[in-house]
């Protein structure tokens, strides 16, 4: 047991309170706003509660729009996650095998799409997407989301294969198995978990993406974050709060399922 430096329990209690507010506050505030009625200055709480904002958001033309955006977001997220994890598995494995200066180049290469500001990628790649007919299309937006997602998932698999124990593979090879024979009974079961975690990571990157969708999608591909942005710009706070809840809950759920896989990437998420 390492002794702790002398710190007041008051400071620790304050820290705990602050962390609680940061964790629970946002969702609580969004729930209050989306279900609240007549929440005018300087009231601390809404005058009354009703589901009217949720009701009008879900019905009629706005409901259809939101549903289309949600479906687009879901499809984009799932395809980005799936493609990114399947591509990053072999790429990350090769990158993890590099040593010395090559190792640094490999790691920098995987970090580059994560660090590059998405608006600059959108600006730099828009022309290519337009010329190839992908601008403003679902596939175009998917490919754009895949760029940062592949960076994250490659970093993830680099971290994974750094500690991956290939003695099981080697043992099976020594016993006369071929690489192909090895795959189903040995390699695949070992990789199922990291593949799922990487896919969820890719899902999160796509799910929260705004600038690449705006620039490459040219406003023709609607997603949940873009709907949220338009509610905010239109001053429809209650719709925005409801949209934010719809956007946040699956993300929190994803993290719960993925565990803390993100630690392996060593880079910021979403």
């Amino acid at each position: 047991m390492i002794p702790r430096p002398e710190t007041g329990s008051a400071a620790r209690a304050l820290l705990l309170l602050l962390l609680f507010l940061l964790a629970a506050g946002p969702l609580l505030l969004l729930l209050l706003l989306s279900f609240g009625e007549g929440w005018f200055w300087p009231a601390l709480l809404p005058a009354e509660f009703s589901g009217s904002a949720w009701g009008s958001l879900a019905s009629g033309a706005s409901g259809t729009r939101l549903l289309r955006a949600a479906l687009n977001s879901l499809l984009l997220g799932l395809s980005t996650g799936l493609l990114a994890s399947l591509l990053a598995l072999p790429l990350g494995r090769q990158l993890a095998r590099l040593t010395g200066w090559r190792r640094m180049v490999g790691s920098a290469a995987a970090f580059l799409p994560v660090a590059a500001p998405p608006v600059t990628l959108g600006v730099g790649l828009n022309y290519t997407f337009l010329v190839s007919g992908l601008g403003g299309s679902f596939i175009g937006v998917l490919l754009a989301h895949l760029i940062p997602a592949l960076g994250y998932t490659c970093l993830f698999f680099m971290g994974y294969f750094e500690v991956y124990d290939d003695r099981l593979d080697e043992a099976a090879l020594t016993l006369g198995a071929s690489r192909a024979q090895l795959f189903r009974p040995v390699t695949l079961p070992l990789l199922r978990r990291p593949l799922l975690e990487a896919a969820l990571l890719g899902f999160l990157i796509s799910w929260a993406q705004v600038p690449l969708t705006l620039l490459i999608g040219q406003g023709l591909v609607s997603t949940l974050p873009l709907e949220l942005l338009s509610y905010v710009n239109a001053g429809q706070d209650r719709f925005a709060a409801a949209g934010a809840i719809i956007l946040t809950l699956p993300a929190l759920l994803t993290l719960a399922v993925a565990g803390l896989a993100i630690k392996r990437t060593g880079a910021v998420v979403a």
Partner: peptide
């Protein structure tokens, strides 16, 4: 196993970074 085939690793590095490099080239 480590470091046996650096060529594949470098190719992987290029593949991941390529979209950004293309973006830089187009900006230029």
């Amino acid at each position: 196993m480590r470091g046996t085939q650096p060529a594949y690793g470098m190719l992987a590095a290029f593949v991941v970074a390529a979209p950004v490099l293309v973006g830089i080239a187009y900006c230029a």
